[in-house]
Design a protein around this nucleic acid. Structure first.
Lengths: 188, 188
DNA sequence: CTCAAAATTAAGCATATGCTTAATATTATA
DNA sequence: TATAATATTAAGCATATGCTTAATTTTGAG
């Protein structure tokens, strides 16, 4: 890994911070550069334009979400419980995961331009990955039956809400997974 | 009600649309004016600056949320059920309510400048109003017991998620309140 | 109709923004 | 050490932005 790769990673990290804080339009390339301690010219040496920084972050987010749901798929039982628990654990141990998780939520409805609608849809797809998670959870008897889509929205909403609080106010204690499950899961 | 009042209301409506679409920083005063079909000078005739437009919208949102939770408080039973049902009904019948509901969510963590932190906190307080709603729901036996804060986040997340979808994609059918309740409510 | 108040616009200033370009510093390799 | 590739900066161009100002149109009461 050469120096350039490190710099690029650093710039992506800083960009993620600013995008979360101020959104796409509110983020200036100058601010990203300033916070990273480099000239804005350097930013455009590593990225062709502002939009491509944003898109690269979305790509990374898509990867991360994929890994997360896929690994949970392999859990032998307590499927959804494991998924949520793993997310909570990462929220606690890995701040950058939380940032990415919140970022991906904010991206959902923020198509910057029409031409990037394709990548935009891909990120929505990631959230759709939760739908089979819910359905599988229902099949395994973790959930009460009901409208899968709404259930998905509820679970995602709950987890996202908790993640947002954790990212913005890091001191926030996370609820025990059991507590969260307790709200939505069938009694044993 | 004179002409000026109507214009001001119209400008606020348009501003709300743009703020939801592009966030605070991504919204330009020129765009608000253009979409309203007036010059940008007129915008600054009715509002002292961009920030004050945003703050005025927050104030209106605070009012609306207050009315909503307060009226539900008076429901004799099925407290939370009525609250959510009323929100869903308004989402279906009154598009501007949905916009405001989603807007208030987006405002939560977007303190524009430090000096307006006070009004910002007020809007957070509105969301806090949900906490007694949940606790009361638990007391009345609508909910299983559990951590009230997490339960609040979950319910808010669910309702917000559904509202967002409805506002961005108006064709989205809303779930029956029963379905949503079914996820989180104790069996009768 | 008169004319003052209110509504509205056009033009522009100062600054911020996305991005480019040419030059300089640093690094690595032969 | 010499040299080519890479990393980095400083300066600036074109445009967008928040907001002001002076002028013009519209409105409504006497």
């Amino acid at each position: 890994m050469d120096k350039g790769d490190n710099r690029k990673k650093q710039l992506l990290q800083v960009a993620l911070d600013v995008f979360i804080e101020k959104g796409y339009y509110g983020t200036s390339t100058r601010e990203i550069a300033r916070r990273a301690g480099v000239s804005s010219g350097l930013l455009f040496h590593y990225f062709s334009n502002k939009e491509s920084i944003y898109l690269e972050l979305i790509k990374l987010g898509v990867e991360e979400m994929k890994i997360n749901t896929e690994s949970a798929m392999e859990a032998p039982c307590e499927y959804l419980y494991q998924t949520i628990k793993s997310i909570f654990e990462q929220l606690e141990s890995n701040p950058s995961f939380g940032k990415m998780f919140v970022f991906m939520d904010s991206v959902q409805y923020t198509a910057v331009h029409d031409k990037e609608i394709e990548l935009f849809l891909k990120s929505v797809d990631i959230c759709r990955q939760w739908v089979p998670v819910i359905i599988e959870g229902q099949r395994r008897g973790e959930f009460r039956a009901g409208n899968s889509h709404s259930l998905c929205v509820a679970v995602l909403g709950a987890v996202q809400g908790i993640a947002q609080e954790k990212v913005r106010i890091p001191d926030t204690p996370l609820p025990k997974t059991e507590w969260l499950m307790d709200m939505i899961v069938i009694d044993n």
